[in-house]
């Protein structure tokens, strides 16, 4: 196996290269820091939040629609104000961030699994298999993702599982296309031939040999697609066909506040909006930087 290892480019080097590339650009480093901080906040959210926003017993309708910094009846200060149900906006946003990030990451990971597998299969086997898979990929990419997701949810109805399913269905094609083109290049290299000669099983060649060398484009696509999944989920939830009201994401919080925005109660929708924008924007900056560093010749979006 040692001579096989020598023939292969070094996959671990990619991660080091990515990390150092991010650190070298101040803008990307700040964005990466913001991303990590937001993930951390989402992870330990329940301990940070001053209030459990979905424990109805702790809500008091008398506290509804307090402006930022407003004080409740029992002297508690709501730094970011309260919503129509007297819910602390800060707590609601922390819980919303958990939902948004969770849905985006889960959808991204599943789409990556499906897309990567199909992309590798298409590149490795070629011929009819390749033609069939790529035909479907072209078809999927011919429609805007938001439209397909919207149509699916219009037919299927709301629900967290359905939103994730819709996002996976619209996103796997991006991974499949990127992985296939990277794997096609690798397919012709000697180490793959060596692996075939050694009689390694096909899954081992695909995932053990080819996959590690397709990492650079995969990392870039994965980053950008998670951001786009979060944005898509927020859009769908804002339209009222995404997540149900019992699992509010940032998009749904914004939608709730949007109804009173025209009356001047800006904080209910603007604060979650700023948080959502910060999240998506920083992931995108990191993704853009990764694209520069790892330099896979990717198309926009």
């Amino acid at each position: 196996m040692s001579f096989l290892a020598r023939l292969k480019p070094d996959p671990e080097g990619v991660l080091v290269q990515a990390a150092s590339g991010i650190l070298r650009s101040p803008r990307a480093a700040i964005a990466a820091f913001v991303c990590l901080a937001l993930v951390l906040i989402a992870l330990i959210g329940p301990f940070l939040a001053p209030q459990n926003p979905y424990d109805l017993a702790s809500l008091d309708i008398m506290d509804a629609r307090l402006a930022p910094g407003g004080e409740s009846f029992d002297g508690h200060v709501y730094w970011l104000g309260t919503d129509g149900q007297g819910r602390d906006m800060l707590s609601a946003m922390i819980y919303g961030l958990r939902t948004s990030l969770g849905v985006g990451l889960l959808a991204g990971v599943v789409a990556m699994g499906v897309g990567t597998t199909l992309g590798l299969i298409a590149a490795y086997f070629g011929g009819r298999t390749d033609a069939l898979i790529m035909r479907v990929v072209d078809l999927m990419l011919g429609f805007p993702t938001i439209l397909v997701a919207l149509m699916m949810l219009a037919v299927l109805g709301q629900g967290i599982g359905k939103v994730i399913l819709a996002l996976v269905i619209v996103q796997w094609a991006f991974f499949a296309r990127a992985v296939r083109s990277a794997a096609l290049v690798e397919r012709g290299k000697e180490y793959v031939e060596a692996a075939i000669c050694l009689g390694l099983s096909k899954p081992r060649i695909l995932f053990g040999q080819l996959l590690p060398n397709c990492l650079p484009p995969l990392i870039v696509i994965a980053t950008l697609q998670v951001a786009s999944a979060i944005a898509a989920e927020a859009t769908l939830s804002f339209l009222g066909i995404g997540l149900p009201i019992t699992q509010p994401s940032l998009g749904l919080l914004i939608a709730n506040g949007y109804q009173v925005l025209l009356a001047g109660l800006y904080w209910i929708s603007v604060f979650p909006g700023v948080l959502l924008a910060l999240l998506i924007f920083s992931i995108n900056i990191v993704g853009d930087r990764l694209r520069e560093v790892l330099n896979p010749r990717l198309e926009q979006r």
């Binding site: 951001a227 944005a231 927020a234 859009t235 804002f238 339209l239 998009g251 914004i254 949007y258 925005l261 025209l262 001047g264 800006y266 929708s269 603007v270 909006g273 959502l276 924008a277 998506i280 924007f281 995108n284 900056i285 853009d288 979006r301």
Partner: peptide, 28 residues
Amino acid sequence: ILGFSLPNFWQGMMLIMIFSVWLGWLPS
């Protein structure tokens, strides 16, 4: 990049916020 990455509905909301609610220039 802002135009690319921020969700469409969010941009729309900000437009309404600024031009309809604060400035009162345009109907929403």
